[in-house]
Design a protein around this nucleic acid. Structure first.
Length: 293
DNA sequence: AGGCGATCCTGAGGGC
DNA sequence: TGCCCTCAGGATCGCC
């Protein structure tokens, strides 16, 4: 499940090829994966039972344009053209962006929903594909840079640079669990279930605590741990639990240092006590009742 | 306001 | 070997 670190690794692993590249040809293999402005379903997620996509053209996937680069906010990735139009890529649960040299074979060819054929700035030719077996992810066409800014302004501050002030602001008056706040992309962008649990553990805060009751000291500690854990996970190449690989197919190693995620019933690495589990905000949650007061 | 359940989807893993 | 069930979860929607 790609969260901020995994999306950032994907971004890094395509940036060099994407910056200055020309999109020679773009193909959409599955129509309902792309949302274009004016679609009956205008939100960020598609309700598939009702979603009826309008006709998409290769231009909606930036065919014929030169790319400026790959940008990221929270868990969202955007291929941005130098003229302004962009495509937001959301990986959802099982989404991948893979990149191979033109003519090279992709390791997996099932569930590929979009393909871009690129000529990089140095003249080399590449194929970029969006693959997403479970289709919780998707693509969003954005007509200009102002629209991208507008869309991304609906997201909270990027979790990688989360300040105590910003965290305090979204916790103020929030009568819900602090983990629910961390998972809310409008409050903080980029944290998912794994790193929410890991950050709460590292900060010694029970994820069930009502957000508004956190002390300034706890807020500061939590913001620092969110930043540290995400930065460390990026350095380790992200967390590979099952599906995640970066654009070159490289697995991550951050899962090796998880202290609580998927460790329910196992001993706490800090105190040796048994880790507890329940469901919070619809997500499996693991914490140490002794270390997280 | 926000908790909660349902929904979308596929693949893995357990039980028998 | 195979079938059925459950579970995983990001985001949203509708109900309470």
């Amino acid at each position: 499940m790609p969260e901020l670190p995994e999306v950032e690794r994907v971004r890094q692993s395509i940036e060099a090829v994407v910056a200055g590249a020309t999109v020679e040809r773009a193909t959409l293999h599955r129509r309902d994966v792309l949302v274009i402005p004016g679609d009956p379903e205008g939100g960020f997620s598609r309700n598939r039972t009702r979603y009826r996509p309008k006709r998409a053209s290769p231009a909606h996937l930036l065919q014929g344009l030169t790319l400026r680069g790959a940008h990221r906010r929270g868990k969202q990735l955007a291929l941005v053209s130098s003229k302004g139009p962009a495509v937001i890529v959301h990986l959802g649960m099982t989404g991948q962006v893979r990149r191979v040299a033109e003519g090279a074979r992709l390791p997996q060819t099932d569930h590929i929903h979009a393909t871009w054929r690129l000529t990089a700035a140095d003249g080399s030719r590449w194929r970029l594909v969006f693959r997403d077996p479970r289709r919780f992810g998707g693509l969003w066409h954005v007509p200009d840079s102002a629209s991208l800014t507008e869309r991304w302004s609906a997201l909270g501050p990027d979790a990688l640079t989360l300040t105590p002030t910003a965290l305090a602001e979204v916790c103020r008056g929030a009568k819900r669990a602090v983990k629910a706040v961390l998972l809310d992309q409008r409050a903080v962008a980029g944290v998912g279930n794994i790193y929410a649990d890991e950050a709460c553990f590292a900060a010694g805060i029970d994820p069930h605590r009502t957000a508004t009751t956190l002390t300034p000291h706890e807020i500061e500690s939590l913001a620092a741990e969110v930043r540290r854990i995400l930065a460390d996970a990026i350095e380790r190449g992200g967390s590979t639990l099952r599906d995640y690989v970066d654009a070159e197919g490289t697995q991550g190693g951050a899962q090796l240092v998880h202290r609580v995620y998927a460790r329910a019933g196992l001993p706490c690495t800090q105190c040796g006590g048994v880790l507890s589990t329940d469901r919070l905000a619809q997500r499996a949650t693991v914490w140490c009742p002794r270390c997280q007061g």
